[in-house]
């Protein structure tokens, strides 16, 4: 239900993904993105599949932390950025990961991003520590430098691929086809379900 909601059975499937930017850290990598407002949509074409990416900026101040669940509800991916020269920011990312895994389980693709790799000499979070942590929570770790505009495009492309994989796996699990997932979605059956299905056949063959 959450992923690829707009998809049909036909070949030209379009995926719609929601990605949230959480915490304060992501502000570090935002400037190079064409993010003019706090909401951004991107149309991508990945391995022949159309992907609509909706990127949600969230209020990062501490006093709005409690509102997190409202923001990340139904999202397919989350980007969590820390500053490699600031150990505190890595700790905050860890807290977010804990919360997201608790609330959304494994359905959400997590990206942990170490930013400011151009300042490697001031590094306070070791590469090994960060990468092994990311692995331990089923997230993927990325290195970026907003200043040198390095790694950010790759981050989004890779995230899209992962979200597509997740969505496809979910589809296979539910059986192929949105209609089936729709009926399994809810327990309550509506009385007029079946009569409605009949004219639909007619509308298919006519078109």
């Amino acid at each position: 239900m959450a992923a690829g909601g707009a998809g049909g059975n036909s070949g030209g499937k379009t995926y719609s993904f929601k990605v949230v930017l959480l915490g304060e850290g992501y502000k570090l990598i935002i400037p190079p993105l064409p993010l003019q407002a706090s909401f951004l949509t991107k149309k991508l074409n990945i391995t022949g599949k159309r992907v609509n990416l909706a990127i949600w900026d969230t209020a990062g101040q501490e006093r709005f932390h409690a509102l997190g669940p409202i923001y990340y509800r139904d999202s397919n991916g989350a980007i969590l950025v820390y500053d490699i020269t600031d150990e505190d920011s890595f700790q905050k990312v860890k807290n977010w990961v804990k919360e997201l895994r608790k609330m959304l389980g494994n359905e959400i693709c997590l990206c942990i991003v170490g930013n400011k790799i151009d300042l490697d000499k001031d590094r306070h979070v070791s590469v090994e520590e960060a990468e092994s942590y990311a692995e331990s929570v089923g997230a993927k770790h990325y290195h970026t430098s907003a200043k040198l505009n390095k790694g950010i495009e790759e981050l989004f492309l890779d995230l899209c691929k992962r979200m597509m994989e997740t969505a496809q796996a979910e589809e296979r699990l539910k059986g192929n086809g949105a209609s089936q997932s729709a009926s399994s979605r809810r327990g309550v059956q509506i009385v007029d379900d079946e009569p409605q299905a009949t004219p639909a056949g007619g509308c298919c063959s006519s078109g």
Binding site: G8, N9, G12, A178, A200
Partner: peptide, 8 residues
């Protein structure tokens, strides 16, 4: 149903 009618 619309999806299948409009061919996606």
């Amino acid at each position: 149903r619309l999806m299948s009618h409009f061919k996606g």
